[in-house]
Amino acid sequence: MSKANTVNERRRARVRRSIQKAANGRPRLSVHRTSQHIYAQVIDDKAGNTLAAASSLEKTLRESLKTGADTAAASAIGKLIAERALAAGITSVVFDRGSFLYHGRVKALAEAAREGGLEF
């Protein structure tokens, strides 16, 4: 395993530990980004299932977005995940950025989700 993978795994574990302490039964808004796309899921860790999901791979978004790898795509995913979570009856979540820094696309997704009505 390379040193970069080890650092990312340690950061992910550190973030996950702090999220579990602060969750208080709230679902987790998990964000994953790659070089070409961004994904978001609202996960109930107690039941172990996904309550809402959105990604830049969805057909309606692929047609309307220039690319899935910019802040415009991230904000569109943030609004969509907030809309789907509210439709599922979820208003408050805890934000899980994974091993990614709260900057750029991850920050744009989080801010759009807040504007869409999610509280975290």
Rank of each mutant, 00 (worst) to 15 (best):
N24S: 14
I38T: 02
G25V: 00
D44T: 01
K21M: 12
A47L: 09
P27C: 08
S18Q: 15
L61D: 13
L65Y: 10
N24R: 11
S64A: 15
I81M: 02
K21F: 09
D45R: 05
G78E: 08
Q41S: 06
L57V: 12
V42M: 03
Q20F: 08
L65E: 09
I81F: 05
S30N: 04
R33Q: 10
G78R: 01
K59H: 10
L65G: 08
H37N: 11
T71I: 05
R62A: 08
S64L: 08
K46Y: 03
P27M: 11
A82R: 04
K59E: 15
L65K: 13
T60E: 07
S64Q: 14
A72I: 07
I43P: 00
E63W: 04
A72D: 15
R26C: 07
A22V: 12
R26H: 12
Q20L: 14
I43C: 04
A40L: 03
L65D: 10
S75A: 11
Y39F: 09
S55Y: 10
T34H: 07
A69M: 09
L29H: 10
V42G: 02
A47P: 00
A74Y: 06
A53C: 11
A74Q: 05
E58N: 08
G48R: 07
K59T: 15
T60G: 05
K66V: 14
I81T: 03
D44V: 04
Q36T: 15
I38K: 01
Q41D: 05
H37F: 11
G25P: 01
T60A: 14
S55Q: 13
G78W: 01
G25D: 05
G68H: 04
E63K: 14
N24M: 13
K46P: 01
K79D: 13
A54H: 00
V31D: 04
L51M: 12
N49F: 04
L61N: 11
I77T: 06
D44A: 03
T71W: 05
R26L: 13
I38S: 00
S18V: 07
L29G: 07
R28N: 12
A76S: 13
H37Q: 14
A23T: 02
H32L: 08
G68E: 05
H37W: 11
A47K: 14
A54R: 01
K46G: 06
V42N: 02
L29Q: 02
R28D: 13
K46W: 00
T50Q: 11
R28K: 14
I19V: 15
A22G: 07
Y39H: 06
S75V: 06
Q41K: 08
A72K: 10
A54M: 03
A53S: 15
R28L: 07
Q20H: 13
L51V: 03
T67E: 11
Q41P: 00
A73L: 11
S35C: 05
S56E: 11
L61H: 13
I19S: 03
A40I: 00
V31S: 03
A52W: 02
T50Y: 03
I19G: 00
Q36Y: 11
